[in-house]
Structure formats: structure tokens, C-alpha cells
Design a protein around this nucleic acid. Structure first.
Lengths: 218, 218
DNA sequence: GCAAAAGTGTTGATTGTACACCCATGT
DNA sequence: ACATGGGTGTACAATCAACACTTTTGC
């Protein structure tokens, strides 16, 4: 079927399509973003977002998953499409239309695999260097996006392990919003939301008393 | 510069890129969506969103403006990018990645120009027929989107003339949300928002008493 | 004078926000 | 015993939601 009619749109131009992923991670109570040092032209040696070109045999979501997996080895992570950037000269080498995604991954136990072909590094979110093309803008837009989402949708849990304490969860919120929250009000809201389930165990890694662990409800 | 390095990405595939616009209009206290009857293959004769392919010399916003202008003759309308659809077989003729946009236009005084090459028709929002490809999904997603936006951002004014009465504005909100609102609370909120400025004149077209006209503040 | 739409306030409920002390434990 | 982070409740403010009658005017 496809080949029978594939000349219908023959007169229209085609474009390179890429995804650029803003990969957020959380550790040491801070929010990080994964960047790679480009080992190819143009702008070789500069830092950039995690990106790659769309293949014929995949959709954009699959492309974003693949790109993140190739770099981190993590699959089944939280990924969401954001905006599509199409300025004519945004990439100086060629016309490329790029779809931005954000990813949330848990860094508590994660170490970057060293067997990749890339130099990758986690940057604290307010220490992002100058990036290629429009990548700084992509990060800023994605930050705005997750800030507005975190109050309405349960995305923060993707940055933590399956079991987490309430103080840790609050740290995630504070890191994303970059403001400190009231402990009592935070707990009240979280518990009232019904999103979390209290467990028996305690996490004693960050206090002598220990903090009860919770898990995310479906 | 561009041509010097344009072989860097030579090994990657290229794609047809289109925009599909959900063009909303408001008249007779109802929300409408503009659809066209396709006069080209595939799916000739079926209804579809207003769409077109991206050209080399434009970005996606410009493409969306052009596509809407070609059909309605209106420029400088409110346009906003939504999602990008990339399922491999979403278009049966060829692989096409499509970026959806929504547009809001004022239909009170507008008549569709008859000199276009298309058959275009306004459909009331809950009488949308079956459309080609994933266009019904696009409309549903865009509806959700503007419903969540209308309470936070001043997008409703784009559906009305420069001067409008509060009852008319309320009708816009009710049509978009498809629920009826309390008159007193609605006015209270609108006036408190500071977004509108009361004028001296009244609109007498829909009542004997007449309703004061307001204008949108920048 | 009556029908039809415009305009106008108050009350109670809910939600959000600010705030300070005791608890458990490892050292 | 003390330092450290975990856990708890209350009071006030702000916002939201429900509700009914009067006004204007063209016919």
C-alpha cells in the first residue's frame, strides 16, 4: 500500500528530524541535567543535549527512548514530548527540525556507564554551560514545563527509587521549583492526595531517627 | 556556510513534515472547527483538518500561518503549537510527521472566502465527522489543551471582536468548557483579573436593555 | 405591562498559608 | 546529654461555589 501511492507527495521537500532530550536526574538533593560533549562536527567539543536523528523505522517516542538508552543504559524511563523547534538556521550544518523531550531518571543508585562513545556529564541545573544551537532555550522551556506540571501530575516520583521518604520527596519538589516548602503543608498535601502508601520500613541513611518509607500508588 | 558543511548529516533519513491546524471559531454562542474536504489523494472526498507541508524557506509557525491564511484570508491570528505526531503509518500514502497547531479566530463578522480551491466548512465542535488519519485525536487533544489553558491565559478574547460584552465572553467560556458558569462569579473573576476595560457603549443586539462593551487590555 | 436579558452581594465551604514544639536515636 | 533530622496541629486568610432579585427597555 505504502509504495503504491508514495509518489503522491513527491513534490514536497523532506527534512532531517531529530530529538533532543533534556534528561533530568536527582541526587544529593539537587537537580541535574545530562549533557554530552559533542565528538562530531559542527561545534565539536561543545556541550549539548542528548540527541539523535529519527530513523525510518521508529516514531519520535521510540527515537527518544533509544537515544537515552544508548547513553545511559536505562529503559522504561519517564519520557514526555515537549516542543518542536524549526527555525531555519537553528543547526548551522543543515536544516534540522528538532523535537524536544524531557526524561526523568533516578540517580540515587545510578552510575553513568563508561563504555559509551560519548563524554557525558551531569550538570547541576543552575550551572549549565553555554550549549550549542538553541539547547539552552530548550532546557529553560522544559524547566518551566516541569515546574508547572509537578503540582498537578505525579512526575516527581520518577526521579526517586520505588521506596522513598517524605523528606526526600520534598527535596525533589524543592529542587525542581527552586524554592523551599513548608514541611507540614507538604506532608498534608501528599498524604491527602492518596498518591503514596506508607510502608513499615524506615530510611536511616539521613537521620538517626529514620524517616518512614513510602511507595507510589500505581 | 550551510552548503560547506551540509554533508555532515548525509547518512540520516529525511522526512515529509506537515502542520495540521485545528482552527476554532465562535459564532451563535457555539464553538466551531474548520474542516476541509480533501480534493486530493489519499482519502479524497473525506474531511480533514486544515494542513499543509512545510517548505524549505519557512519555519513551522510560518507554515501554520500560511496554511490558515490560504484558506481563510486571515492573518495575524492567534496560533499555538501543540503536539507532534509521528506514528509510522499515520498517513497511508507516505511517512509524514505532522505538527499540530490550534488557531482561534473571530467568526462574528467573518464569511469564508469562496475563491479557494477547497471545500471548507465550519462544524460545530460536537458534530465533528470521522476524519482522515489521526485528525480526530488531534482535535480531542487540542480541546483538552485549550480547556486547561482558558482558565489561566487570556486566549478567549481571540475568538471575539475587539469590543465585546461580558455575556458574550461568558458564552465563549461556556462553549469551550461545555458547561454553564455562574453569571455573578464569572463577572467577578473577569473584572478582578484586570484583563478587560469597560467602555461607554452598549451592545444592543442581543437584549433590549443592552450590555456594556469591554475591551481586552493589551 | 410584560417578556427577555443585564446587572448586582452575601454567605458558607474549601483550600492555602503561616507558624513552633516534641520525638527518636546515634554518638 | 546533645545534636540532628522526623514528625505533628491550629488559626487565619484567601479563594471558590452556591444562590435570587431588581433593572432596563422594546414590543
Amino acid at each position: 500500500m505504502k509504495t503504491q501511492v508514495s509518489n503522491l507527495y513527491a513534490s514536497y521537500p523532506k527534512f532531517l528530524l531529530s530529538v533532543d532530550c533534556i534528561v533530568f536526574g536527582f541526587k544529593e538533593n539537587k537537580l541535574f541535567c545530562l549533557l554530552i560533549k559533542r565528538n562530531f562536527e559542527p561545534e565539536i567539543g561543545k556541550w549539548s543535549l542528548v540527541g539523535g536523528f529519527l530513523n525510518e523505522n521508529e516514531n519520535l517516542n521510540q527515537c527518544a527512548s533509544r537515544v537515552v538508552f544508548d547513553l545511559t543504559g536505562l529503559d522504561k524511563i519517564y519520557l514526555e514530548q515537549l516542543e518542536t523547534y524549526s527555525e531555519i538556521n537553528r543547526d548551522w550544518a543543515d536544516r534540522v527540525v528538532s523535537v524536544s523531550y524531557f526524561a526523568l531518571i533516578n540517580l540515587e543508585l545510578f552510575e553513568m556507564p563508561s563504555n559509551t562513545n560519548y563524554t557525558a556529564k551531569w550538570f547541576e541545573i543552575n550551572e549549565i554551560p553555554e550549549l550549542i544551537f538553541d539547547h539552552n532555550k530548550m532546557i529553560n522551556n522544559s524547566l518551566q514545563n516541569i515546574r508547572s506540571k509537578i503540582g498537578k501530575f505525579p512526575i516527581a516520583f520518577s526521579l526517586l527509587s520505588e521506596r522513598f521518604s517524605l523528606p526526600k520527596l520534598q527535596n525533589v519538589y524543592e529542587a525542581i521549583l527552586s524554592e523551599s516548602l513548608d514541611k507540614r503543608n507538604f506532608r498534608k498535601n501528599m498524604l491527602a492526595s492518596g498518591l503514596i502508601k506508607k510502608l513499615e520500613e524506615k530510611d536511616k541513611t539521613s537521620s538517626k531517627k529514620g524517616a518512614y518509607l513510602y511507595s507510589f500508588n500505581q
